[in-house]
Design a protein around this nucleic acid. Sequence first.
DNA 1: CGGTCGTTTTGATTTGGATCAAAGCTTCGT
DNA 2: ACGAAGCTTTGATCCAAATCAAAACGACCG
Lengths: 250, 250
Amino acid sequence: MKTESLRLQSAPVNLEELKTACANCNLREICLPAGLSEAEIHGLDELVYVRKKVRRGDALYRTDEAFDAIYAIRSGFFKTRVTTLDGRDQVTGFSMAGEILGMDGIGHDKHNCDAIALEDSEICTIPYANLEKVALEVPSLQRHFHKVMSREIIRENGVMMLLGVMRAEERLAAFLLNLSQRLNARGYSALEFNLRMTREEIGSYLGMKLETVSRLFSKFQVDGLIEVNQKYVGLRNIEGLREIYAHHTR
Amino acid sequence: MKTESLRLQSAPVNLEELKTACANCNLREICLPAGLSEAEIHGLDELVYVRKKVRRGDALYRTDEAFDAIYAIRSGFFKTRVTTLDGRDQVTGFSMAGEILGMDGIGHDKHNCDAIALEDSEICTIPYANLEKVALEVPSLQRHFHKVMSREIIRENGVMMLLGVMRAEERLAAFLLNLSQRLNARGYSALEFNLRMTREEIGSYLGMKLETVSRLFSKFQVDGLIEVNQKYVGLRNIEGLREIYAHHTR
DNA sequence: CGGTCGTTTTGATTTGGATCAAAGCTTCGT
DNA sequence: ACGAAGCTTTGATCCAAATCAAAACGACCG
């Protein structure tokens, strides 16, 4: 089990590595090329334009900026958010290594949300024009890209369900279980992690106020479900969390 | 301004019509082929498999059913919904003529929600294998399909904002304005329409109870914003609704 | 027609989470 | 190493919407 931070150590970037970005990348199993054969992955040489660092707090893109690329997260952590006309905002998701950002931009050739780094991050820029072109030549890439977009639709369906029908406790349990599962899929502990986002950001995502998030963390701790201390969270009773999430003990 | 029902009159289906389905369809400007040239649309001959009727109350597809096609609505009205493990459900959207259903199925080769007809409807089945194949040959179709999926992501972002940050009044105003705008885009009155869904379905979509929907309809009527009588809704003060939606008068 | 069932409206009451408030922690810049 | 600014926790109070309840309305069917 890896114990270091989510940030991968940054290697010096050389041209050779850039040209075979996806083939060499240790995220290829969970990122855009997932499911492609070795040969097909080598066909992606021209896909990835360049890696870029995004500092904690900086935007990868912002609402209304012209869209011309999607992004694969190599390391780090992002939130996406939309803002109402009167300035309230809603966090629409949290994204980690191997996940794709920016697909919201395709629909109207401009981005529909802000993507903000919650820690220093590194991303691969995939110009959309390249993606379109390569997808025409590599059918399995086209198919997989459709899957990635569809899964984003499915994910958002799940968030709508969280927000529409679940109670605050259930939402927070669902959030913790989801984070745990995604970290685990990346080789980190499913039982212990450090949150990258604030209580306010969690609350915005889950449709509740930061005070409610804090109170529920405390309650879960008293109930022996988790141990929590500032950003640290340890899951002490996963089954209990699942019951809250699924069975709806009221 | 058309005044008849949303249901288009059904013409006898003959083979010739089927073979050139999209080219002959009066929805081609807002449906999947939108933005394609006449020549390109004729390239879609093999895309659409067959038209099918779905009776009011019947499912076009259900959660966990194997996915093999997406659907374009020719006439009628649908709701999509997801269900929690303990049986509560969340309406995730309402769909009308020209809109595409089923893209949630691509991600895991099975559907992720139920699509239920709210009135007798007619749909075009687009086998996903055909779509993939034709998209490789008609780049503008590939691009437009990406746009359609991306817009679904954007739409869901909007619903997340409704559910996460807006108050009940704002949600209902947003809902009415959105319906009005979409009906208008299809040639119907923007100011008067008959709802196809119940108060309970509206409530489920907007994350509130049916009684709250009913009370707000009554309040909007008292405030002179709308006239409402069972399924009939007339918008009497669109600007007022926009203010509630956008400016958040509290 | 008349009865039944699903839908809608409206009223009375309750409550989960918001809001307001204040103190304790952490982190970061100088 | 210190001070300020930003997070987090916890308490007290309030309120928007849920829940409970019942009557009215409409559509469909035998």
